[in-house]
Design a binder for these strands. Structure first.
Lengths: 100, 100
DNA sequence: GCCTATCTATAGACACTCTACATGTAGAAC
DNA sequence: GTTCTACATGTAGAGTGTCTATAGATAGGC
């Protein structure tokens, strides 16, 4: 989850609601992450120093916009390589061997 | 986890300890799954009807050997496709360029 | 006798996700 | 003018599963 959030915030800062929409869009509509997952996760990541937030009012609605910090960029790089390693490991167990 | 267990039991029945070693071997030593994870998981899978077990005594030591049931084979196929879909989805968010 | 490897198993802590709830604005539909 | 949908944030509590730590037991090497 953390990696996904950091990833959608890589290109541009977004607020919570937009992040959820971005996740859906990027995954082709598959990912449907509930607010009860996203908002606490964003706070956790801010607490960890990977994100920074600012309040803004757009069209009478208040938004909390999150952006990646430099520590967040480093963390994202780590999450990416961790994911690749993880995916490779799982695949090595799960997928039948073709070259044995 | 469930998928990994079903997968190592696909070719041949194994007992818990051997399953842990098989997971390590297949993953190139990366996966180090503790017994506190494996044994409850095996019971859960047996409860679900995906595995069946038999006790055997080999060299004075008691072993509980698990084997895949036909329902387990079906479940494994489902887990495999679920994993592929999941991995594709995560990758599409994490690495947008590769999944366009 | 002691240590390591083999073998199974449980209890409790820990972390995270999900459901459901709680609150409020803006604009379109009727 | 009221109702519905979309926008927008947030918390509480349940549920699930993994990990750490612990426990007991046999076999074989030193």
């Amino acid at each position: 989850m953390d990696a996904l959030l950091l990833s959608v915030l890589e290109a541009e800062p977004l607020h919570g609601y937009a992040i959820i929409e971005a996740l859906q869009a990027r995954s082709g509509g598959v990912l449907n992450v509930p607010t009860g997952t996203v908002y606490p996760a964003l706070r956790r990541l801010e607490q960890a120093g990977y994100l920074a937030s600012e309040w803004a009012t757009v069209g009478g609605r208040k938004r909390r916009t999150y952006r990646l910090t430099s520590a967040g960029r480093t963390a994202l790089a780590g999450e990416r390589s961790a994911w690749r390693e993880f995916a490779t490991t799982i695949a090595s167990v799960l997928e039948p061997r073709t070259a044995e």
